[in-house]
Amino acid sequence: MKKKIWIMDFMPFLVVPLWTSILHLDFVKGSFVVDVTQSSYQAEENHNITLEWTFTTKPDTSLSALKVFCSLNNGHKYWTFYHLFDGVEFSEDEEFSGRVQSDKDALREGRIRLQLSRLRTEDSGLYLCEVDTGYGRGYNSCRLTVSGKTIHLYTCDHCKVWTGLITAVVVVCFVLILVILRFNERPECDDDDDEEEEELVPHRLLTR
């Protein structure tokens, strides 16, 4: 009986540290968060765009301690468009070679800013970034839609004005050409009349 009482007396001292450890682990796990500033982006082909993620950071975190792995899933294939390991940045796929730039100063502040240049329609898809800081790990994703260039057909009032002006110019030019042609024909007729008169004069003199 005394033995049972001794165990029961020490049960609170065994249970409390266990619950404290569990709560501490949950707190540490929940304190690290990876988030996106926008859930979706839209851009046109051949333009540039900046995708951004945020993560929980500490003041003494160095770039060499960060591990960032970012990939694209466009529904047909997976691409690794950005990878940070031991402070070195690179892209594993040639599709994004030379088209991805990161802001290292933003990384120190807990922000992943990746600029994608010369966008293509096949760049559309789900962009996922996974972050490992050594004291926390998480990931989040956003969607990018790249549309092709559209040809705009302008049917505005300005176009109608220009069409009217061009038509008027063509009509005026046509009238001027007719006037010039008509003017050039008249002197030839006068010369013919003079020749006929000169031919008639000797004939009259002879008849006399």
Results as ranks from 00 to 15, higher is better:
residue 4 K to P: 09
residue 8 M to N: 02
residue 8 M to Q: 06
residue 11 M to Y: 10
residue 13 F to L: 12
residue 18 L to V: 12
residue 18 L to I: 11
residue 23 L to D: 11
residue 24 H to D: 15
residue 29 K to W: 11
residue 31 S to C: 12
residue 33 V to S: 13
residue 33 V to C: 09
residue 34 V to E: 03
residue 40 S to R: 04
residue 41 Y to D: 07
residue 42 Q to R: 00
residue 44 E to Y: 07
residue 52 E to D: 03
residue 53 W to Q: 00
residue 53 W to I: 06
residue 54 T to P: 03
residue 57 T to K: 07
residue 59 P to F: 04
residue 69 F to P: 08
residue 71 S to Q: 10
residue 74 N to T: 01
residue 75 G to H: 01
residue 76 H to F: 09
residue 79 W to L: 13
residue 83 H to F: 02
residue 94 E to F: 02
residue 102 S to T: 00
residue 103 D to L: 05
residue 103 D to R: 03
residue 103 D to N: 10
residue 104 K to S: 14
residue 106 A to P: 06
residue 108 R to K: 12
residue 109 E to F: 04
residue 111 R to P: 11
residue 112 I to Y: 01
residue 114 L to I: 06
residue 115 Q to Y: 02
residue 121 T to A: 02
residue 121 T to K: 00
residue 124 S to H: 07
residue 129 C to N: 02
residue 130 E to A: 09
residue 140 N to G: 05
residue 141 S to I: 00
residue 142 C to G: 01
residue 144 L to H: 02
residue 144 L to V: 09
residue 147 S to Q: 09
residue 148 G to K: 00
residue 151 I to A: 14
residue 158 H to C: 05
residue 163 T to H: 03
residue 168 A to S: 06
residue 171 V to M: 08
residue 174 F to Y: 09
residue 176 L to Q: 05
residue 177 I to V: 15
residue 177 I to G: 13
residue 181 L to Q: 14
residue 185 E to P: 08
residue 185 E to R: 04
residue 187 P to A: 09
residue 188 E to I: 15
residue 188 E to Y: 13
residue 192 D to T: 14
residue 194 D to M: 08
residue 198 E to L: 03
residue 206 L to G: 13
